[in-house]
Design a protein around this nucleic acid. Structure first.
Length: 968
RNA sequence: AGUCAGUUAGCUCAGUGGUAGAGCACUACCUUGACACGGUAGGGGUCAGCAGUUCAAAUCUGCUACUGACUACCA
């Protein structure tokens, strides 16, 4: 089998996804183990209007890594996908389509037709993102895909709304709300963003105080009172002027009336603590219908609420004849002009102001008095607060600062405005009779029954999209009874089984809820995370999830958040095309959890190169795979015992002792001691140790959601240990032309190690690893986790290596380290003395017998990798003066005779620089050791380690100094 | 205004009470039978500044500077 010299990601990406999907590998039902623990994640449903951006790619990668690993570990794993109906976004797209194609407005076609078209739009364009997710390799269970407006999810919405209403947590009320004049709907506080404008103006208006007998008597009373405002047009809706009760300047004015200019209304001057005497003029115009603070002042003083704007932010008839129909900004100019005409414009100051804008359309939001539906958050907030305070749920990763942000926000939570003046969404299940009485019910029929009439009109508004999203952690699992999955539960052991037997059925809800972890961005901790926690607790009495991973933001190359307007976006699909899906995924996983990162193509290139390295290492193994196959017993003698067990059959297992060697010899003599499987070299033991250590550490890292740590470990193991050293060390043996069992065992061994590495890499790089795994000789469904034995062979279901602690071999690692150090030292001498690669050298070594034994056992590899022709081992050096010398850890001395090649000056410099480095380190350490309080207070093992290091340095210095003197 | 985070090699970023790390870039050498998207050997950092705690601080604490995020208010 011949592979191309370069990995072509597109090819591998084409080959596998569809097969994985259609084979049912993504669905939890693939798991045959009735006792399997479950693992579940629900995806944050992207907007149907959306297309994949880097934030999705990041989050999806993190979720897929978790899910793929757990699945390989034999968990009954479900990653549930879905999309969100995205109220305003879809509404806008469909309205735009209507305008463009037919020059019509939504009102022209009517509600029913509009909704029909919205569904059509969704069917046509709404699956962009689901296709893109397939490209990403996301192992979601498409058969359980949910849309927030699916019938059962809509039913869940109605159920929750009605229950909350019945319990008194939902109410309809007249409040100051955030109004977007462009979308013509109310927005929740969270959908409003602040935008700072430097060109704001603060306008000072003079209001004439009405002259009465009383005011005339009080000579000190001024003729006017000046108020400052950033929104002069709202003065048309003023119903009072307020001052601080303690403000001496205005004491006499309290209770007086003002003749409000441009209107023929008179308004009172009132006193309220809310007013800050220090700010502006200390007198504030009060417009209860257009400002939240003024509204509250108005409530306290029983002021009238005069709404002067329409829903498109033009002025209404209350604003007066002169202003009616004018846009708010036109009206603003006109008000100012009129005041100027009247001589009542005191001044206009430049003023930096932050304006509330609509998160989506950036239109300036108008605070406006309006009747809306609200959720009173008291009880729900307490549910979430209790969970975090008593159970620490959800546990945030990274914990700081997210947990604090979450808790603080909950503590200051205000009521949630849930109605939206849109057509696309869940229409509010409330009906009105002709008298305006409200009937909230799950269906029209119920409402009619309550009302005693069917002459009812349903509320025109729909619910905030986040209302249905808040139910996502349980509504998607068939909470309403539909689409609830086919599981039965063994009540005795409380284990889950997909069966058709007659035990009582249970649902996806019982199996998969609560979910294990939620992966999402900082921006929706409040909008979504908190609400899922509250509502899931409230309605199914469970935590929505145990853990929340808050991802960082992928910034553009300029270090700013990616945005269309800035044009600094990086399209993940382009990255997939350019570098491959796997490279993009593992790069995204290499970002520290929660950290922001500036996009940088060269880093992704690193992982493109890594993919190519994996490809080529596999290519090498395959080129030399004749007579060999993947077989775990080649890298684990104990596994051989298990293999024997498998061969001799299950019935003997019970009285079988793995340590009983006699028994082994008895049952299967061909597996006995001298077989090449057990005849492992230092290099073999070392790589097996490194493999198992890496596997163990990767699992530990992922358990803590330290993806970047896992990536680092895998990168290092594969590139530095496996490719740079192991392949090079065993190359001669493996490529040998001589056919024998030793060669074939070596070939099987390297194939098996590679196969284990591919499994470890699979969650990060699914396409590459599947592509290569399938090509390895000897792979089959027996390598699967036992939960998937009947499934067709795929690396997706292979058992994820946990790392066998008994195969971590400290001694082999340290012996190998000695060999690596020797080879590196010789290479260093060669490079520094500028000896050509083609020049073969001799190596003389003076070491203790144990070390010499290690070198002797690996002579062939040392000669090859150091490009040497002869290795002389003894206990002391006896070499010509014309030699380059060095010292290894432990005091082993090496010398490379360089007759005719040595540059004595250079060698002197080389030795001197090494001596300098070592002495300055030694000095530092000695100083520390001579510090009494260090020796007394530092942990003994630290002191001991330091002493050892000093001794080591002294040994090396001695040798180096002798070598230097010999040169003089 | 408040809260929080970041500031480490030329660049992008890991690390974290006990002698500073990676990738890229850089220098020199290498068409060594998997890979030049490669190999070998190197150079490069008083870990933003100041003060404190400690035997020991890049790591903990405080302050300062710069950058960024979030929350609230601004008549």
């Amino acid at each position: 089998m011949e592979l191309a010299t370069q990995y072509n990601p597109q090819e591998a990406e084409k080959n596998h996804y569809e097969h994985w999907e259609t084979s049912g590998f993504f669905a939890p039902e693939i798991n045959e183990n009735p006792d399997a623990p479950k693992y579940s994640i629900v995806i944050p449903p992207p907007n149907v209007t959306g297309s994949l951006h880097m934030g999705h790619a990041l989050q999806h990668t993190l979720m897929d890594v978790l899910v793929r690993r757990k699945r390989m570990q034999g968990f009954k794993t479900l990653w549930l996908p879905g999309t969100d109906h995205a109220g305003i976004s879809v509404q806008r797209k469909v309205a735009e389509q209507l305008r463009r194609d037919e020059n019509k407005t939504p009102l022209d076609v009517g509600r029913e037709e509009f909704i029909r078209r919205a569904w059509k739009w969704k069917e046509e364009y709404g699956n962009t993102i689901t296709q893109q997710m397939r490209r990403e390799g996301a192992s979601v269970d498409w058969s359980r895909h949910r849309f927030t407006m699916d019938e059962d999810l809509s039913k869940a919405v109605r159920e929750v709304f009605c229950t909350l209403f019945e319990e008194g947590w939902i109410y309809r009320g007249l409040r100051i709300v955030n109004w977007c004049p462009k979308d013509k709907t109310v927005l929740s506080d969270l959908e409003v963003k602040e935008e700072t404008r430097k060109d704001g103006k603060l306008t000072y208006l003079q209001y004439p105080v009405k002259q009465t007998a009383e005011t005339r008597a009080l000579a000190r009373v001024p003729k006017t009172i000046t108020v400052a405002t950033t929104r002069p047009e709202t003065m048309l809706g003023d119903t009072a002027v307020a001052v601080n009760p303690n403000d001496e300047r205005y004491k006499d004015l309290i209770g007086q009336m003002i003749a409000l200019p441009l209107t023929n209304r008179e308004i009172p001057i009132i006193a309220d603590e809310y007013v800050d005497s220090e700010f502006g003029t200390g007198a504030v115009k009060i417009t209860p219908a257009h400002d939240p603070n003024d509204y509250q002042v108005g409530e306290r003083h029983n002021l009238p609420q005069l709404l002067v704007m329409n829903d498109d932010a033009t002025m209404n008839e209350n604003a007066g004849e002169e202003f009616v129909g004018l846009d708010r900004f036109e009206a603003r100019k006109k008000v100012v002009a009129k005041f100027e005409e009247l001589g009542l414009l005191e001044k206009i100051e430049d003023y930096e102001i932050s304006l509330p804008v609509c998160e989506r359309c950036k239109t300036i939001v108008e605070p406006i008095l309006s009747e809306q539906w609200f959720v009173k958050m008291d009880e729900l907030r307490d549910l979430a607060l209790d969970l975090i305070k008593t159970e620490g749920a959800p546990h945030f990763h990274p914990q700081i600062p997210n947990e604090k942000v979450y808790t603080t926000w909950l503590e200051n939570l205000k009521d949630w405005t849930i109605s939206r003046q849109l057509w696309w969404g869940h229409q509010i299940p409330a009906w009105y009779d002709n008298e305006g009485n409200i009937f909230v019910a799950r269906t029209f029929e119920e409402a009619a029954k309550q009302a005693g009439t069917d002459e009812l009109t349903q509320d025109n508004d729909v619910l905030d999209t986040w209302f249905s999203s808040g139910l996502w952690a349980f509504s998607t699992f068939g909470w309403t009874g539909e689409n609830s999955g086919q599981w039965t539960v063994d009540s005795g052991r409380n284990k889950i089984q997909p069966t058709t037997d007659h035990r009582p059925p249970t649902t996806d809800l019982e199996v998969f809820c609560p979910t294990d972890v939620l992966v999402t961005g900082r921006d929706i901790i409040f909008l979504w995370v908190s609400r899922m926690m509250m509502l899931t607790k409230k309605f199914v009495d469970k935590k929505a999830f145990d853990d929340v991973i808050i991802t960082g933001t992928v910034l553009g190359k300029d270090g700013k958040p990616m945005s269309k307007s800035r044009g600094n976006g990086v399209d993940p699909i382009e990255m997939f095309d350019k570098f491959g899906v796997d490279a993009t995924r593992i790069y995204l996983a290499s970002i520290a959890t929660g950290a922001d990162i500036k996009w940088n193509d060269t880093l992704i290139e690193t992982y493109r190169n890594f993919a190519n390295k994996i490809w080529n290492a596999t290519r090498f193994c395959l080129m030399n795979s004749e007579g060999a196959q993947v077989d775990y017993t080649f890298i684990n003698p104990k596994a051989e015992v298990r293999e024997i067990k498998r061969l001799i059959g299950d019935e003997l297992i019970d009285d079988f002792d793995e340590e009983d060697e006699e028994f082994l010899d008895k049952v299967e003599p061909e597996f006995a001691k001298d077989n090449p499987k057990e005849n492992l070299s230092i290099a073999d033991k070392w790589i097996i140790s490194r493999l198992n250590r890496t596997a163990r550490d990767v699992n530990r890292a992922l358990d803590r959601y330290f993806y970047h740590e896992a990536v680092r470990l895998l990168y290092q193991f594969f590139w530095n240990d496996f490719c740079d050293w192991y392949i090079e060390l065993v190359k001669d043996e493996i490529t040998s032309e001589t056919v024998n069992t030793t060669r074939d065992a070596a070939r099987s061994r390297i194939l098996t190690i590679l196969e284990q590495a591919l499994r470890l890499l699979h969650p990060f790089m699914p396409y590459l690893t599947e592509e290569l795994w399938q090509k390895l000789p000897g792979v089959n469904a027996n390598l699967h986790n036992p939960a998937y034995r009947s499934a067709e062979q795929t690396i997706m279901l292979a058992d994820f290596p946990l790392g066998d602690a008994s195969l971590i071999d400290e001694r082999a690692e340290s012996e190998m380290q000695t060999i690596i150090e020797l080879i590196s030292k010789v290479r260093n001498i060669r490079a520094e003395m500028r000896i050509k690669t083609s020049e073969k050298l001799d190596i003389h070594i003076a070491a203790d017998s144990a070390t010499n034994k290690i070198f002797a056992e690996n002579e062939a590899q040392i000669l090859k990798l150091a490009r040497a022709k002869e290795l002389y081992l003894s206990e002391s050096l006896n070499v010509p003066k014309a030699s380059a010398k060095g010292v290894l850890t432990g005091g082993t001395e090496i010398a490379v005779p360089l007759e005719g090649l040595i540059d004595f000056e250079k060698e002197r410099e080389r030795l001197e620089s090494q001596i300098n480095n070592l002495s300055s380190e030694g000095e530092k350490l000695n100083k520390q050791l001579s510090n009494e309080s260090f020796v007394q207070k530092a942990p003994p093992e630290k002191v001991e380690a330091l002493r050892e290091r000093v001794a080591e340095i002294e040994t090396q210095l001695n040798a180096l100094n002798q070598n230097l003197n010999a040169l003089m």
